[in-house]
Design a protein around this nucleic acid. Structure first.
Length: 570
RNA sequence: GGCGUUAUAGCUCAGUUGGUUAGAGCGAACGACUCAUAAUCGUUAGGUCCCUGGUUCAAGUCCAGGUAACGCCA
């Protein structure tokens, strides 16, 4: 038994995430966590909401609510949806927690003590009307290059020329529309990432088993142009972790907060503290401090490719720079993007399926299966309703669902709703057991390696093996001449169901639970060996024919959903 | 503009360190079965592995250039 710390990239508080976000981090992390728990390992699986920054402030303002209240509500919404998808976080924390505030301030103090923080003075656009400094993209005006009237402070969308906000003619705040903008001097803290470049480089080089996607992105940031740049860790906002040097004030930094990218990953650690403080566990340092028991922990992070630079460079800079024995990540599993019908998911245009809508339309396990079996591991993957329909109908309804249906109903018709006890296994049964033994071993190897799609394919083959066996042995024919032999065949086939349940549980926890429930069984332990696992339903055991596990998706439903989610979200 | 990823059967994708007839699922055709959610099982047909050039006894696999798609950055 090993100890596994697993974190999923933490979703931003603003709004409900789409299926692409889900499949890029939380869902595969959950798959892995459930699998490892099933194998008997000790797992701490953490996720949280990322709550600070300007977008949260603006969304709160739009909703007419104080930002703290808005975040608290949205956190509950996201927590509820996560639960709906069966995401088995040991704790779902908040980056705005007191624990994270204290820890972020402590890290900043420590980094400053190590000489890794510079204080720099910058000129930034200030809006007296809004009472705040404006980030570049919240300033708009006329492009000095092409005359386009709605150019953003960082770039003109019309002529694509890169701009500085002070270049704009007649600049205005996109928050209030105010035009009385002015340049003001402001002081900020920079994390000297450049000083840690060589150390990071060597560390990345040592990770030869990481996905190419992960290391290539990290290398690019390390070596591109002038190499890894220092990065501001503070902002002139009110919503965030106040800039302090540990418990002490930080002269000149009054009224400023830490930049969201700095405090968000620290929440991975703070979340473990929240987990303890919520009474769900104890001794969080055992998971995070290598001097306090975490040296045997294997830490795996899951994220989409857009988050890779933060997890390979920025957060490790914070950890390494502290020169304290914090646990560094051991493996980063990164994902490409899921595209929707040839294009991007779009929150603003309501294009694609969002997590809340997905649950309105179909059970979570249906989504879990499709998303995981099509996870964008090696390249971007595409969601189309047609592909979704055929995969769900074929894999879940026909191969798995129908297998359970056909064998339980056949048994009921010929032997009643109890496991028949006559007959003995022969060569065909031994062959099936041998085949399954090999397949289960392969499945475990793939799951250990976090090969998500291949694991799904192997699991499907395991389901299909049941149909192949029934087809070849044809107990309905055997029954006419040798009822005892048919009884043995049915007994074995019935016993496949609990095996399928436990193997499928990481992918489809709710379905797996209902499978064993119908059989009047407890969820079995992960199989040590297949022959033992296939005797969990003893002769005479009474069961009930389950309800239809998966309804098929009709062409009408498919077309209606395609229409509904094509764009323009209300 | 710079960079990254991708380009393999009609579709979605596998193809370890270059090594015999390039694989799977779906779809298609044909057949078997009739227990089952008109489900299942089997067989077969489909590929100039984006293009050009190079390295090698040998290239889908390595190198160079090009094309295209997607994305990131400034």
């Amino acid at each position: 038994m090993a100890r596994h710390l697993i974190t999923s990239a933490i979703p931003y508080i603003n709004g409900i995430k789409h299926l692409g976000n889900l499949v890029g981090s939380q869902l595969p992390a959950d798959l892995y966590a459930r699998y490892l728990r099933g194998r008997g390992h000790e797992v701490l699986f953490l996720c949280a909401t990322d709550e600070h920054g300007t977008p949260a402030e603006l969304a709160a303002a739009k909703a007419g609510k104080p930002v703290a209240e808005y975040c608290a509500e949205m956190h509950e919404v996201q927590a509820r949806i996560a639960k709906g998808f069966g995401l088995s976080f040991d704790h779902f924390g908040r980056s705005s927690s007191p624990q994270n505030r204290a820890l972020t301030q402590a890290f900043a103090a420590r980094l400053a003590d190590q000489g890794l923080i510079d204080e720099v003075e910058q000129q930034q656009i200030y809006s007296p009307t809004d009472g705040r400094f404006l980030p570049d993209r919240y300033v708009e005006g006329t492009c000095p290059n092409c005359g386009f009237e709605d150019a953003r402070g960082d770039q003109c969308d019309n002529c694509t020329k890169q701009l500085d906000p002070e270049d704009l003619i007649d600049p205005r705040s996109t928050i209030s529309g105010a035009t009385d903008l002015e340049m003001r001097a402001t002081k900020h803290l920079m994390l000297r990432q450049s000083a840690m470049k060589d150390k990071l480089d060597a560390w990345i080089d040592s990770k030869t088993d990481w996905p190419v996607l992960t290391t290539s992105i990290a290398k690019k940031w390390l070596h591109d142009g002038d190499g890894l740049q220092d990065r501001g860790i503070t902002r002139d906002l009110s919503w965030g972790v106040p800039v302090k040097r540990g418990d002490a004030d930080w002269p000149g930094m009054e009224g400023k907060v830490f930049y969201v990218w700095f405090d968000a990953p620290i929440e991975y650690i703070a979340c473990a503290q929240e987990w303890v403080d919520a009474g769900k566990g104890q001794d969080w340092e055992r998971w995070w401090r290598t001097d306090k028991g975490a040296d045997d922990v294997r830490y795996t992070q899951f994220m989409g490719k857009d988050n890779v630079p933060f997890h390979t460079l920025s957060f490790p800079s914070t950890i390494m720079g502290s020169a304290q024995p914090w646990k560094l990540v051991d493996y980063i599993k990164s994902f490409n993007f899921l595209t929707y019908d040839g294009g991007q998911f779009s929150t603003s245009r309501g294009r694609g399926v969002f997590m809340d809508q997905a649950l309105e339309v179909l059970p979570a396990d249906t989504w879990r299966w499709w998303l995981l079996s099509h996870a964008p591991e090696t390249s971007d993957a595409e969601f189309t309703w047609e592909n979704f329909q055929t995969a769900v109908n074929k894999d879940l309804a026909d191969v798995l669902g129908n297998f359970i249906s056909r064998i339980t109903k056949f048994c009921r018709a010929k032997f009643g709703e109890a496991v028949p006890e006559a007959g003995a296994y022969g060569p065909a049964e031994e062959a099936l057991i041998a085949d399954l033994t090999a397949r289960v071993a392969r499945y475990e190897t793939l799951m250990d390696a976090m090969e998500v799609r291949k694991s799904a394919a192997e699991l499907r083959a395991i389901w299909a093996a049941g149909n192949e066996y029934l087809q070849a042995q044809a107990p309905w024919t055997t029954f006419k001449t040798d009822p005892d032999k048919a009884a043995a065949q049915v007994r074995l086939a019935l016993n496949l169901i609990p095996l399928y349940a436990v193997l499928s549980a990481p992918f489809m926890p709710a379905t797996a639970a209902s499978m064993v429930e119908a059989l009047h069984l407890e969820m079995p332990h992960w199989p040590d060996d297949v022959p033992t696992a296939l005797s969990s339903m003893a002769p005479g055991h009474v069961f009930a024919v389950p309800e239809v596990l998966f309804a098929k998706i009709s062409d009408e439903d498919r077309d209606a959903w395609a229409e509904r989610f094509a764009g323009r979200r209300d």
